[in-house]
Design a protein around this nucleic acid. Structure first.
Lengths: 171, 171
DNA sequence: TATTGTTATACTCTATAACTATA
DNA sequence: TATAGTTATAGAGTATAACAATA
């Protein structure tokens, strides 16, 4: 074994965002990089499928999903918080979706600065189709995990989410 | 309780990328969205810190990290695979890092099409500093998790990674 | 004064595809 | 013919900061 770059058979065979960590690195670093690898893996796959099948990007889909769960509409600031991005981004995404006819801004009486964003009928129709596929794709990707593994993973990520909440919303 | 948009106290208090899922949605969907929330949470935090403290972006740091674990250098195609992005992106990132003096391209004799990318001395120095902080930040973010939780999470994400490997490298 | 949302700016990353040099 | 890498293009997301309107 003369190759000093060798970092283990598994890593060598399947390099990924985790593979720069060494086995003797602290677990939290390796855990984070593995989390990142998993989310990149899934996101790459979903992004491609979404684009090919629906000419849709992930953030636009996410925004429509948020609205689909809020029939009364959401304010821009609420969308910003839910999607964990800054205000200006939401304006941009909503602009695009509005132009495509999937969402609409509705002025609200009680506060004339803000408006409620809602799915249009066409937006709801579009989302139903996308959502069905999205769920199926996610189902396939997670299918190899046992029900028990999924539940454990869900709970553990819940702990992590609680932990990291305080410091992580972008300005 | 007259608000039909209500999706539970926890969600209402801390909306995030997971909060459009309903409690009765399939676990795999909720699990995926929670995974996404966690990785967004951590990434947002690390991105801000990296920019503020080191004028560095996450992809550039990732690339330097890969190289730091490969003293002999890596080919562009290897970087592309490890970082799970397309070839052209790697060219762009390497170009920038080369201009900043952190990496260098070295022509290789055996195949004149390709070259080996390596950290320069300055790159190694820069990376050491960034790496120290990066590890500390990750440590803080994951600190609330017990050692056992981390280990479980690490193992479960390993399962997921194996599962999703087949279909997820971007073209 | 503080907040909601928009606008302007600039940058980074991204994929796709066409291209070159070499194998 | 196939592969390694670059270039060209276009687009999407991002943060920051300044701004207008309103609370």
């Amino acid at each position: 074994m003369k190759d000093s770059n060798n970092i283990g058979l598994v890593n060598a065979a399947h390099p990924d965002r985790e593979s720069w960590a060494r086995p003797d690195d602290k677990l939290d670093l390796r855990l984070w990089l593995r989390l990142l690898t998993c989310s990149t893996l899934v996101e790459n796959r979903l992004r491609t499928l979404m684009r090919n099948d629906f000419a849709m990007t992930l953030p636009r889909f996410d925004l429509m999903a948020q609205l689909a769960s809020a029939p009364r509409g959401m304010k821009m600031s609420e969308l910003s918080r839910s999607m964990m991005v800054t205000n200006g981004n939401i304006t941009g995404i909503v602009d695009q979706l509005e132009q495509e006819g999937y969402v609409e801004r509705q002025k609200v009486d009680t506060d004339r600065r803000s408006s409620l964003i809602r799915l249009t009928a066409e937006g709801r129709r579009k989302f139903r189709g996308m959502s069905r596929s999205y769920r199926a794709w996610v189902g396939e990707l997670f299918e190899p995990l046992s029900e028990e593994s999924r539940q454990q993973l869900f709970n553990l990520l819940g702990e992590l989410k609680e932990a990291g909440r305080s410091a992580s919303t972008p300005a």
